[in-house]
Simulated assay, not measured.
Amino acid sequence: MKYTKILLIGLISLSLYSCSDDDDSPQDESIFYWNQTKCADPWNTGENSTNEETEIAVKTYLENENISVQKLEFDTRSPLATDCESCGCGTGQRIIVDVEDSDISKMKELEFYQ
Rank of each mutant, 00 (worst) to 15 (best):
residue 21 D to W: 06
residue 46 G to H: 05
residue 47 E to D: 13
residue 82 T to S: 11
residue 104 I to Q: 07
residue 68 S to A: 12
residue 70 Q to C: 00
residue 43 W to A: 08
residue 68 S to P: 00
residue 108 K to A: 04
residue 57 A to I: 10
residue 91 T to S: 11
residue 11 L to C: 13
residue 16 L to H: 12
residue 49 S to F: 07
residue 12 I to L: 12
residue 77 R to W: 12
residue 25 S to C: 00
residue 108 K to F: 05
residue 73 E to S: 14
residue 59 K to T: 06
residue 7 L to S: 13
residue 78 S to G: 05
residue 37 T to F: 11
residue 99 V to K: 05
residue 19 C to N: 14
residue 94 R to N: 14
residue 107 M to K: 03
residue 56 I to E: 14
residue 4 T to K: 02
residue 32 F to R: 03
residue 95 I to G: 12
residue 45 T to Q: 15
residue 11 L to A: 14
residue 90 G to H: 10
residue 59 K to R: 10
residue 90 G to R: 09
residue 18 S to I: 08
residue 71 K to V: 01
residue 87 C to Y: 09
residue 82 T to W: 04
residue 55 E to I: 06
residue 109 E to C: 02
residue 48 N to E: 13
residue 63 E to G: 08
residue 96 I to G: 10
residue 47 E to S: 14
residue 51 N to S: 08
residue 31 I to G: 01
residue 6 I to V: 08
residue 112 F to W: 06
residue 30 S to L: 01
residue 47 E to W: 11
residue 34 W to G: 07
residue 4 T to A: 01
residue 88 G to S: 10
residue 10 G to K: 00
residue 78 S to C: 06
residue 111 E to A: 08
residue 37 T to L: 09
residue 40 A to Y: 04
residue 58 V to N: 12
residue 98 D to G: 03
residue 47 E to V: 14
residue 101 D to L: 14
residue 68 S to E: 14
residue 73 E to M: 14
residue 45 T to S: 13
residue 110 L to E: 02
residue 93 Q to K: 15
residue 58 V to Q: 10
residue 45 T to W: 11
residue 1 M to G: 13
residue 37 T to G: 07
